Measured scan of single mutants.
Amino acid sequence: GKMTGIVKWFNADKGFGFITPDDGSKDVFVHFSAIQNDGYKSSDEGQKVSFTIESGAKGPAAGNVTSL
């Protein structure tokens, strides 16, 4: 299901970062391709987002990331 969290950091040059879930669980990796914004796929530190957890090649990753 959908979770909410805060972007801990995001490196636009490398195209990835981490989200800290609101439920206190482990930080989740986020790749720019998962960000659902139109246009520039980046996110700012401290941005509140909703997301799903997908199982990626390197473990859990955020999917369907949407700014709230």
Rank of each mutant, 00 (worst) to 15 (best):
P21R: 03
S67L: 15
V65A: 03
N11L: 05
S33V: 04
I35P: 02
D38W: 14
G15A: 03
I35M: 13
S67N: 12
I19T: 00
I35E: 03
K41L: 13
V65F: 02
Q47V: 11
V30N: 01
K14H: 07
D23W: 05
G5D: 01
N37G: 14
P60G: 04
N11G: 03
A12S: 11
Q36S: 11
K26R: 12
G17F: 07
T20N: 03
G17Q: 00
K2Q: 09
T20W: 05
E54H: 14
A12E: 08
G39T: 10
K2M: 11
I53W: 08
T52V: 11
T20I: 12
V30S: 01
K14A: 08
N11Y: 04
S67I: 15
L68S: 06
S43M: 15
V49S: 01
S42F: 15
A61D: 03
L68Y: 08
K58Q: 10
S67R: 14
Y40Q: 09
A61I: 15
S42N: 10
A61Y: 15
G15R: 05
P21I: 04
L68E: 07
I19D: 00
G24N: 06
Q47P: 05
S50W: 08
D38F: 14
K58D: 07
T52S: 08
L68D: 05
V49N: 02
Q36V: 13
I6L: 06
K14F: 09
S33Q: 05
S50I: 09
F10G: 00
D38H: 12
G15N: 03
F10A: 02
I6W: 10
K48P: 10
N64G: 06
T66K: 11
G24L: 04
A62I: 03
M3N: 05
P60D: 08
I6S: 07
S50H: 06
N64T: 06
F18M: 07
D44H: 15
S42V: 13
P60Y: 10
E45S: 15
S67Y: 15
K14S: 06
F29N: 00
T52E: 06
D13A: 14
K14C: 10
T4Y: 08
S25M: 05
H31K: 03
P21Q: 02
G46Y: 09
G24I: 02
K8Y: 05
F32L: 10
K14I: 09
E54W: 10
S50R: 07
D44L: 15
G1L: 12
A62Q: 02
A12T: 11
I6H: 08
K58L: 11
F16Y: 14
W9A: 00
L68A: 07
G46D: 05
N11S: 11
P21V: 04
F18I: 04
G39H: 10
N11M: 03
G1F: 10
K58W: 15
K8D: 01
P21K: 01
N37I: 13
K58S: 09
K2S: 08
G46N: 09
A61L: 12
G24V: 02
S33F: 06
V28F: 04
K8F: 06
G63A: 15
A62L: 02
S33N: 07
F29P: 00
D13T: 13
S50P: 01
K41W: 15
I53Y: 10
G15P: 01
P60H: 07
G24Q: 04
D13E: 14
F10S: 00
N64Y: 08
G59Q: 04
Q36I: 13
I53D: 01
A62P: 03
V7L: 13
G39D: 11
D44C: 15
G1T: 13
G5W: 05
G59N: 05
K14V: 08
G46V: 09
P60F: 11
S25P: 03
S50C: 12
I53Q: 03
D23S: 06
G56K: 07
Q36F: 11
W9N: 01
S55G: 08
A57H: 11
G17M: 06
P60N: 08
A12P: 11
P60I: 12
W9G: 02
V7R: 00
E45Y: 14
F18K: 01
F16M: 03
K14P: 02
K41S: 12
G56S: 13
A34V: 08
K41R: 12
K26C: 11
H31A: 06
T66A: 08
F51I: 02
D22K: 03
G56E: 07
A57L: 13
S42D: 08
A61R: 15
M3G: 03
T66Q: 12
T66G: 04
D38Y: 14
G56N: 10
Y40G: 11
E45A: 15
I19A: 00
F10E: 00
G15I: 06
F18Q: 01
V49I: 04
D23N: 09
S25H: 06
W9Q: 01
K41N: 11
G15M: 05
W9E: 02
K8R: 11
V7P: 00
Y40V: 11
K14W: 12
V7E: 01
T66M: 11
F29R: 01
G46E: 05
F16D: 00
I35H: 03
P60Q: 09
T20G: 03
V30G: 01
G46Q: 08
N11H: 07
F51Y: 10
F29D: 01
F18A: 01
G59H: 05
K2E: 07
I6P: 00
F51N: 00
D38M: 14
A34G: 06
T20P: 02
Y40R: 09
G5K: 01
D38R: 10
G59S: 05
G1M: 12
S43D: 07
M3L: 11
D44N: 15
S55I: 15
F18E: 01
Q47E: 10
F10V: 03
N64I: 06
A61G: 04
D23T: 05
G39L: 12
V49D: 01
D22G: 04
Q36W: 10
K8N: 03
G15H: 04
F32T: 06
F51M: 01
K26F: 08
Q36Y: 10
N64Q: 09
K14Q: 07
G5R: 01
F32N: 06
I53H: 03
K48I: 08
L68K: 04
K58H: 12
A57T: 12
G5M: 05
G15D: 01
T20K: 13
A34T: 06
K41C: 14
Q36D: 10
S42Y: 13
G59F: 07
V49K: 00
K8T: 06
S55H: 14
P60S: 07
I19C: 04
Y40P: 09
G5Q: 01
S67E: 08
S55Y: 15
G59P: 04
T20F: 05
D38L: 14
P21G: 02
T66R: 12
F32M: 10
F32W: 15
Y40K: 09
T20E: 06
I53F: 06
T66Y: 08
E45D: 09
V30Y: 15
W9V: 02
Y40L: 12
G1Y: 10
V28I: 12
V28L: 09
S33W: 08
G24H: 05
D22H: 05
P21E: 02
H31V: 05
D38G: 13
S25A: 06
P60L: 12
T52M: 07
G1I: 13
K26H: 09
V30F: 15
G39M: 11
I53R: 05
I19S: 01
S33L: 08
K41T: 12
P60A: 08
T4D: 01
V65N: 02
T20L: 09
K8V: 07
A34F: 05
K8E: 01
V7D: 01
S33A: 07
D23I: 05
S67V: 15
A57W: 13
V49Q: 00
Q47Y: 11
D44T: 15
V65G: 02
A61M: 15
D27P: 07
I19Q: 00
V30K: 00
A57R: 13
Q36C: 14
V28T: 02
E54M: 13
S25V: 03
I6G: 02
I53N: 02
D44R: 15
K26V: 11
G46F: 11
F32C: 12
G1V: 13
F10H: 00
G17D: 01
F10C: 06
A12N: 09
T52F: 08
A34D: 07
H31L: 07
K26Q: 13
S42Q: 09
M3A: 06
A12I: 12
S67A: 13
T20M: 10
G1P: 13
M3I: 09
E45G: 14
G63L: 13
G24Y: 04
V30R: 00
N11C: 11
K48C: 12
D44G: 14
V49F: 05
W9L: 00
D23Q: 04
A34W: 06
H31G: 04
V30A: 02
K2T: 11
F29H: 01
A61H: 14
D22N: 05
E54P: 01
S25I: 03
A57Y: 12
N37M: 14
P60M: 10
I35C: 12
G5S: 02
G46W: 11
H31D: 04
I53E: 00
V49T: 00
T4A: 04
V28A: 01
G46K: 08
N11A: 07
K8C: 09
G63E: 08
I35G: 03
M3T: 06
G17S: 02
F29A: 00
G63H: 14
A62H: 02
F32Y: 12
G39C: 13
S43W: 15
K2C: 13
S33T: 12
A57M: 12
G15K: 05
K26N: 10
D23Y: 05
I35V: 07
I53T: 03
S43N: 09
K8H: 07
V7A: 00
Y40A: 09
D27S: 05
A34M: 06
M3D: 01
G5N: 01
G17R: 00
